[in-house]
Computed example of a mutant assay.
Amino acid sequence: MKKFLSLLLTGIIFPLSCNKSGDNTHQVHHLKFITYNTPATKGQSAFTTGNRSSILVFESESLCQYFGGTPVFATGGSEGELVPQNSISLVKGSYDIYSLSLNNSQNPSLVFENGLCRELENGIDYLWAAQKNVMVNTDKVIVFNYKRLACLVTFKVKADTSIKNLVIRDMKLSAPKTDSIFLDLSQGKISSSTTCGSLISIGGSGNERSAIIVPKEGSTYLEVELDATINGLVVTEKKYSTVLDIEFISGNLYEIELEIDSSKIAALTTTVSEWRLKNNLVIYAR
């Protein structure tokens, strides 16, 4: 009996002695999220308090299975903190961590299949951020530096000397079709549409208008309706149209200056730049 008890105790003690002191293979580590590295300065805005985003976690180099109970929605808080609705905890490992936002207070309910989302719309300011190959072996702070994925197109209209009292009543653009495009989660990019759909009104006032569209290849139709005095004659609801041969690329800002004369409207200049982040802060549309 004493011999059996001795063996039993040895059997219990032996497997416990195989666990090395400090082995945290199955220990859970907690993640905290912020949206910039430095304090906001005058004229800049951090990810807006109250705006929503989603957080998605995968094993590094894989988009097959979610980890840490994600996807999880999160809310922009004070001092750049991004607060998940549920805490995200991970065991030791290497992970790719993504975040998406519609840059508003709505939950970004984007559905991905094999890393691609095909349910996209014009008029949405898609934001994307990622931290890849994050080695989690302790509690971590994850910094998301968002970038924009759609395109912002702005128009400024001026008239030549034959036109007086110009009033822009409406401006419309042929919206890119979205049925064949996708958002690539790993690359942080929206593919380009190759076809135009129906005309959409462009928001704004006075002689300046702007629209958010998905990327687009090929020509885009523009229509302007106005009231003016043209060569001394008062006209109302006069329509001008032109074709823009501009490729709209994911993440870019396009500032287009238009000139109207008595017979036509044409693009004078097009300035292309990144619709950008500055010092890790989101710069919002003017």
Results as ranks from 00 to 15, higher is better:
282 V>K: 01
230 I>D: 13
133 N>F: 12
61 E>A: 13
179 D>T: 15
47 F>M: 03
28 V>K: 11
174 S>W: 12
135 M>C: 01
188 G>C: 13
285 A>I: 10
62 S>Q: 12
72 V>F: 08
229 T>Y: 03
88 I>H: 01
278 K>L: 13
264 K>A: 13
134 V>Y: 11
121 E>I: 02
256 I>T: 04
195 T>W: 11
258 L>Q: 08
183 L>E: 04
180 S>I: 06
117 C>K: 02
94 S>W: 09
269 T>G: 01
260 I>M: 15
36 Y>I: 01
153 V>T: 01
149 L>G: 02
18 C>Y: 00
153 V>G: 03
137 N>Q: 07
269 T>Y: 10
5 L>R: 04
98 Y>P: 02
63 L>Y: 06
135 M>P: 01
261 D>L: 11
36 Y>F: 10
11 G>D: 01
21 S>V: 04
19 N>E: 06
27 Q>V: 02
275 W>K: 00
179 D>Q: 14
226 L>P: 02
261 D>R: 12
214 V>K: 12
166 L>K: 08
242 T>F: 04
91 V>Y: 07
275 W>F: 10
123 G>C: 14
147 K>W: 07
227 D>H: 11
218 G>H: 01
173 L>V: 14
250 S>C: 13
3 K>Q: 08
25 T>M: 07
81 E>I: 09
227 D>L: 13
174 S>G: 15
45 S>F: 11
275 W>I: 00
156 K>G: 02
140 K>D: 04
154 T>D: 12
188 G>S: 13
11 G>H: 01
203 G>A: 15
226 L>C: 15
62 S>I: 05
78 S>N: 14
101 S>W: 06
93 G>L: 09
141 V>Y: 03
96 D>Q: 12
94 S>C: 11
167 V>M: 08
75 T>C: 11
274 E>Y: 09
68 G>R: 07
272 V>F: 03
223 E>Q: 15
145 N>Y: 04
219 S>T: 08
130 A>I: 09
71 P>C: 08
271 T>F: 06
2 K>T: 08
235 V>Q: 13
215 P>L: 09
116 L>K: 07
11 G>Q: 00
115 G>N: 10
264 K>T: 14
162 S>Y: 03
137 N>H: 03
225 E>S: 09
215 P>V: 01
132 K>R: 14
181 I>H: 15
195 T>G: 10
187 Q>F: 07
123 G>A: 10
35 T>N: 01
55 I>Q: 00
84 P>K: 06
230 I>H: 13
168 I>C: 06
189 K>N: 15
49 T>Y: 08
102 L>Y: 15
40 A>Q: 07
102 L>R: 11
15 P>I: 00
169 R>P: 07
32 K>H: 00
271 T>G: 02
205 S>Y: 01
140 K>I: 00
205 S>F: 05
199 L>R: 04
224 V>W: 02
279 N>P: 02
197 G>P: 07
83 V>N: 14
180 S>T: 15
60 S>A: 15
181 I>R: 15
99 S>W: 05
154 T>Q: 13
54 S>K: 06
153 V>N: 01
31 L>Y: 00
196 C>S: 15
257 E>G: 04
242 T>W: 01
79 E>L: 10
4 F>R: 02
269 T>S: 06
124 I>A: 06
157 V>N: 03
209 R>D: 02
53 S>L: 11
202 I>F: 05
20 K>H: 03
